[in-house]
């Protein structure tokens, strides 16, 4: 596999940004919710995917996934479905926690590549939404499918999923447009 120096460095700095956003709390937004605040921690993988392709997106997501694994593996492995079967518990935890995070960046990249023929800004927004939803939909979907949580948890997670998708779209557009000097389309300042 031939991986460019740029891919390595960009992935590295995006992981560092994720870490700083997580540690400082600036990556979280207060949303009335039981689990946690809405987060933009999935934005670095999205931006990695959009700027440098699926591999960088996946690697940035992988580190985010590792952090999530430490936080959520116990919830999966002690759920009634897996409490008596540690091996299946680990497998389920990997599928539910790691897999979606790995796919955030590639999903964002794929959607961006497909939609960028039209309006660049729309494509960036779509990539943000796609990356964010890949995360929430897959995590919740797989958790329900693999019987970790009952279906009703959707009601709890739905508002958060919508919020995070909007946050991801806004931040992805703003950051990538600024970095690549893409005009957002107003054609000028509003002063």
């Amino acid at each position: 596999m031939n991986i460019s120096t740029r891919s390595i460095v960009v992935a590295g700095v995006l992981i560092a940004i994720s870490a700083v956003l997580a540690y400082t709390g600036l990556g979280y937004f207060p949303v009335p919710n039981v689990t946690a605040a809405a987060t933009i921690l999935h934005v670095p993988p999205i931006i990695g995917g959009v700027l440098e392709g699926p591999l960088v997106g996946a690697v940035v997501g992988l580190v985010f996934g590792f952090d999530s694994f430490i936080k959520f593996a116990s919830t999966v492995t002690t759920s009634p479905a897996y409490a008596n079967n540690p091996t299946m518990g680990w497998v389920a935890a990997f599928i539910i926690i790691f897999l979606p995070r790995l796919l955030i960046g590639p999903a964002a990249w794929w959607v961006y590549k497909r939609t960028r023929g039209g309006n660049e800004i729309v494509a960036l927004g779509a990539a943000g939404v796609a990356g964010s939803l890949t995360n929430t939909v897959l995590v919740v979907g797989l958790a329900i499918l693999l019987q970790v949580f009952t279906f009703e948890i959707v009601a709890l997670v739905l508002p958060q999923a919508v919020f995070e998708a909007i946050l991801a779209a806004v931040v992805t557009i703003a950051v990538v447009a600024a970095w690549k000097r893409i005009e957002i389309g107003r054609g000028g300042s509003s002063v």
Binding site: A11, G12, V13, I15, A16, A19, V20, Y23
Partner: peptide
């Protein structure tokens, strides 16, 4: 190497 660079950049970014 990616992770070493990430580690290197965390204090700079903070």
């Amino acid at each position: 190497l990616t992770n070493i660079i990430a580690l290197r950049f965390i204090p700079i970014i903070a």
